[in-house]
Design a protein around this nucleic acid. Structure first.
Lengths: 245, 245
DNA sequence: CGACGTGTTGATCTCTCTCAATTAGAGTGG
DNA sequence: CCACTCTAATTGAGAGAGATCAACACGTCG
């Protein structure tokens, strides 16, 4: 597979991403070491691995996770094209989480001090990385709210909506034809702190109620209103309604 | 209350914090607008508030949280001296979470574009902020693992250990005399996705078993080994033991 | 002194987990 | 083409961790 130069990175043309100056793109190109292709289900970063480099997910889906010693696994968040991987660890540190692909994926691999060089040579990109990191945290915040305080039904509705939104933003039709849904029910369970069996039953219940449909590896939203109501998500920016008492 | 110049910031002398050049301190001083004092239980940032500035917690305890419209609350993480607050929101954005104090607290308030100025004028401090942000995310990751996959006992053990560690790092004796513990059981419950009643029962169980003690607003660790075993926390860097089958 | 916030405990109730079994592809090898 | 194996999805049944409901104790405070 031939490597695509940063200048022609397919992600750059998406409306989701900021446009950069030619200089900035050149800088990124300098720091990029190579591309790495992984098949579905393969491990990019081992939990506890030291000296993992900085990656960017160029295409495909993956997820970050942590496990307990008896094997219980919690998926921390799902990674889609454009996401950073490995900002967390200080050089020399053990990675606090593993990363595994959900689909065949391509990653851009950066030299280990890329994060610092990026800050040093382009404060504006450094600022963006801080912001992206903070934004990723807010995704984990959302999941924590779900797992801590939402019922199984509500959690699943929330996950479907949020994943759909993210995936839809990456495709031209904005999700009209559904979005890829490469997760198994085990992934959904591990992402929401539920058991596999209960995840299955809840997923089926919502599907039978006509709220959504997973078909052939794609997710279709059939009743967004009902899902949003279930998830108790409020439109961007509007403050949550507090209880009247 | 007189304001302390950054040069004499009490946090700077703690071993936990990086030393900065005189220039960097001068820069921070420039961007700092004022100090703000809040009593225990007061709100620093309202959920959904727009244009919240950037803060730093100079002294005291606080927490970030999100709520559902029916009042269910999830505490995302606890904030101790030295923590940043408000890196998440892009300017103009609504804050995705609220911040409330647990004790009387003092915050440093920065002008809204401080984050950008810091990056622009000191890439090295910008880099540190990225790292701190990533580190805060990893705290949320830890909590998500707890809430998603640990039992009530395990969650509480985990929380006690992690809070103790953070608080102990801020005091001279390293926690030998216990650490402040300004949380009510409701806070513990909201931080761990448990009900108040079950939190109480579990807390009492661990206390009766001699694992810890909460006395007069301070937390004492009585059997760290047992707590660590319960929490399934492994020492820094050692990879988790995977199940043998 | 009554109101309120916090902690405590007992008694149910229920949501979700665990255990068990079945079905439906997809891939492999003979 | 047909067993055979594996993974993922599905469904039923029973069990249990944790939620909810209800009281009460204690200290603080106006």
């Amino acid at each position: 597979m031939t490597e695509i130069p940063c200048k022609q990175c397919p992600l750059r043309t998406l409306p989701l991403f900021l446009s950069n100056t030619a200089q900035e793109i050149e800088l990124v190109q300098t720091l990029r070491r190579r591309q790495q292709t992984l098949a579905a289900g393969e491990t990019l970063i081992l939990e506890g691995q030291t000296d993992a480099p900085l990656y960017t997910l160029l295409s495909g889906w993956a997820f970050r996770f942590k496990t307990l010693s008896d094997g219980r696994r919690q998926i921390l968040n799902f990674l889609l094209a454009g996401d950073f991987i490995g900002v967390q660890q200080k050089m020399g540190d053990a990675s606090a989480h593993g990363v595994v692909t959900l689909t065949d994926s391509v990653f851009c691999v950066f030299q280990r001090d890329a994060l610092w060089e990026l800050h040093r040579q382009s404060p504006s990109m450094g600022f963006n990385i801080t912001w992206l990191t903070a934004h990723e945290e807010s995704l984990v915040d959302d999941t924590l709210l779900s797992v801590g305080r939402r019922s199984a039904e509500e959690r699943i509705a929330t996950l479907l909506i949020l994943l759909f939104k993210r995936a839809a933003a990456l495709q031209a039709d904005g999700g009209a034809s559904g979005v890829p849904f490469p997760l198994t029910q085990q992934h959904v369970a591990d992402g929401l702190g539920l058991s596999l069996v209960h995840t299955n039953k809840t997923l089926r219940k919502l599907e039978r109620r006509g709220l959504h449909q997973v078909l052939d590896g794609r997710l279709y939203m059939r009743d967004v209103k009902a899902l949003v109501r279930l998830a108790d998500l409020y439109g961007d920016g509007r403050p949550p309604q507090r209880p009247l008492v």
